[in-house]
Computed example of a mutant assay.
Amino acid sequence: MISAEPEHAGAAVRIGVVTVSDRASRGIYADQGGPGIEAALTRIMASPRQAARRLVPDERPAIEAVLCKLADVEACPLIVTTGSTGPSLRDVTPEATEAVCDRVLSGFGELMRAVSLNAVPTAILSRQLAGTRGRSLIVNLPGKPSAITECLAAVFPAIPYCIDLIGGLRIETDPAVCVAFRPKGA
């Protein structure tokens, strides 16, 4: 912990939570991905947070628009998506994410696939990625709630410092659940 707190320390962190699903967006079934992300964040994060929930169909323009709005208008330092990351023709979340990002951070997807391979051999079909847009970090997660928890737990130790580096609100974790890495003095 740094000695001089940023002026926005203690403020509720607005987190974008985006579920990408044709069927859930049409009301055919209940969204399980968004609540799965929120439950995982509740366990991991110690910082006060507020979710900006969105549910969109598997349509690239809709995904791009919601990611841009959450980053540029709502200033969410962290935007987490779930769904539409497989090889199906309708799975376009990675393309939409890459299109709106300034920089792609390949290590996030690599780690999530590596962790998921311990559970299922089809993890190699997953195309999750992460990137930055301005002061926002966008992370694509799989759609299955258990995979959401597993993947978010794997990458979250790097998320607070990444957000520090791009100028977002400081995020603290519950060290009993997740130890965020920050260099000494950061």
Rank of each mutant, 00 (worst) to 15 (best):
A119F: 14
Q32C: 08
A11L: 13
R133E: 00
K184A: 15
G131R: 07
E7Q: 13
K184W: 01
A114T: 13
R182F: 11
C101I: 11
L165P: 05
A62S: 14
I63G: 01
P94H: 01
I37H: 01
Q32F: 06
M112N: 05
I159C: 08
I159K: 02
A130Q: 07
G83Y: 06
V92A: 06
S116P: 03
R170N: 03
A153Y: 12
A9C: 05
V13A: 01
V18C: 06
L70A: 13
T19S: 13
D174T: 09
T122P: 00
R49Q: 09
V17E: 00
R103T: 11
T19P: 01
D58S: 07
S146I: 10
A9M: 07
A153T: 09
T173C: 07
T97M: 02
T173D: 00
E172K: 06
F108V: 11
D22T: 10
R170Y: 03
C151S: 13
L105G: 04
A39Y: 01
I163T: 06
T173W: 00
V179C: 00
V56C: 05
L89P: 05
E74Q: 15
T93I: 02
A9W: 13
F108M: 08
V139H: 04
G107D: 09
V100S: 02
I163R: 03
G167W: 11
A51F: 08
A96P: 09
R170E: 04
P142G: 04
A75W: 14
V13W: 06
M1H: 11
S136C: 12
I79A: 09
A96Q: 07
M45N: 01
L41N: 00
A9R: 02
P145G: 10
D31F: 05
R43A: 15
P160H: 02
K144A: 13
A40D: 09
A130M: 09
G168C: 05
T97S: 11
I79K: 05
K69Q: 15
I28V: 15
E95W: 12
S25V: 08
V139Y: 07
V56N: 04
A71E: 04
V92H: 03
L55R: 09
G107Y: 07
I171S: 01
G167S: 10
P94L: 00
I148A: 06
P87K: 08
G16S: 12
V92E: 00
I2A: 12
G16I: 06
E95G: 11
F108C: 06
A40C: 14
E150L: 12
S106P: 12
D58M: 10
G36Q: 02
T42M: 08
T81R: 00
A99S: 14
E150C: 12
M45H: 01
C68E: 06
T149Q: 15
C68D: 02
V18E: 00
A180N: 03
V80F: 02
G109R: 05
P35T: 01
N140L: 05
P175I: 11
S106E: 15
R135K: 15
A99F: 11
A4P: 00
Q128H: 06
G83F: 08
F156G: 04
C162V: 15
L129I: 14
T19C: 08
D58C: 11
P77Y: 13
A46S: 14
L78H: 02
S84F: 09
V20D: 02
C101T: 12
R60K: 15
